[in-house]
């Protein structure tokens, strides 16, 4: 029929110019955000920076712009980089790997493989049917949502390198150990039988292969739009709560009630975090404000991990392939791991 693509792929030079222009615009906006609110609120409108309400509004406006800019930059870069990786490639890398080494590799690959929760079930079946051990598959499924690249980028921007490394290391350890334990207890009997009966077709194609740079950039732009459209209400509520906490909760309030020495702080944080379902990016402003008021980093990391790693929608999806016993064990093992991480880091980072 002789149909041709509407868009002729742009030249390499055109791509470089576009991306450089976008990067400069991003840096300019980020810089502007540092100054524009002072100018607007205190200069043009003549409000006083000592006034608490004004200060709260300032915090809200500044943080909304800052977090949005960070998200746009991070999601775009992460999506373009991740488009070189795929679940299919990960499975090929994990095929034939034994437990132990396999768990470590699966957890690491879980971090860099592009993955949405709606692909959890096909990936699970695909891995198990291809002979990847169940425990190794679970390490992948735990690490994938828990150590999220967007969360890594946000943590690094807001809290610095040390906290970021701690977060990545802690998430990997939980995924490796939890997967290894689930492999040890011979959980195969708690997997829905149809998983083992599923025949894999032979014509799988690798979505990461054969994409043009133009398509990868396009994917990055679309992913930014999709995620922002999905999380903006959570983001605004999160930043709003963050602004209120920032302006109105007395300093060291949490140190008194949930400081590093607190017995139940981490447990309560994880218990609150499990039913909460949010993108890691959506809860970051709140985490930042809570940290400012003396809530220890271990408790906050535990809270974040509970929110992103154990969510009701994902549990409902996984129920299709896991029997209730294994699902309960999965939640218990991951939950315990997160609590342990929380206490450990409260102790280490105190």
């Amino acid at each position: 029929m002789g149909q041709v693509l509407d868009r002729v792929p742009s030249t390499r030079r055109g791509q470089v110019v576009t991306l450089t222009g976008a990067a400069i615009a991003w840096i300019g906006l980020y810089w502007l955000n540092e100054h524009v609110w002072d100018w607007l609120l205190y200069g043009a409108l003549g409000l006083h920076s000592t006034d608490r309400v004004t200060e709260t509004i300032h915090f809200f406006l500044y943080d909304t712009a800052k977090i949005t800019l960070l998200l746009i930059g991070i999601i775009f870069v992460v999506t373009v980089l991740r488009s070189f990786m795929s679940v299919e490639r990960t499975r090929a890398l994990l095929g034939g790997k034994r437990e132990g080494v396999g768990n470590v590799m699966a957890a690491a690959l879980g971090v860099i493989t592009p993955f949405c929760s709606c692909s959890a079930v096909p990936a699970f079946i695909g891995f198990v049917a291809a002979g990847v051990p169940l425990g190794v598959t679970m390490s992948f499924l735990i690490a994938s949502p828990m150590v999220n690249e967007i969360a890594i980028g946000m943590l690094f921007s807001l809290f610095g390198l040390k906290v970021t490394i701690v977060y990545i290391a802690a998430g990997l350890v939980v995924a490796i150990v939890a997967g290894w334990i689930l492999g040890r207890v011979h959980a195969e009997r708690w997997v829905e039988p149809f998983v083992f009966e599923t025949r894999l077709g032979g014509q799988a194609i690798d979505p990461a292969a054969g994409l043009t740079m133009d398509q990868r950039i396009q994917m990055g732009v679309e992913e930014v739009a999709t995620i922002l459209r999905k999380i903006w209400p959570y983001l605004l509520v999160g930043i709003g709560l963050g602004a209120v906490i920032h302006g109105w909760v007395p300093t060291d309030f949490f140190t008194t009630y949930a400081g590093p020495g607190s017995t139940f702080g981490v447990l309560i944080a994880v218990a609150i975090g499990i039913p909460l379902y949010s993108n890691a990016a959506g809860i970051m402003p709140m985490v930042q404000a809570l940290y400012e008021k003396g809530l220890p980093m271990g408790t906050l990391l535990a809270f974040m991990m509970a929110v992103v790693a154990l969510s009701l929608p994902e549990m409902i999806l996984l129920r299709r392939v896991l029997k209730p016993q294994l699902l309960a064990l999965f939640i218990a093992v991951v939950g315990t791991g997160i609590v342990a991480i929380g206490y450990l880091f409260n102790y280490l980072l105190a």
Binding site: C118, P122, I125, F194, G201, Q203
Partner: peptide
């Protein structure tokens, strides 16, 4: 249907 999807060898939906 998951089984049918897997029948095509597709893991990334």
């Amino acid at each position: 249907d998951y089984a049918e999807i897997m029948g095509y060898g597709v893991m990334s939906t």
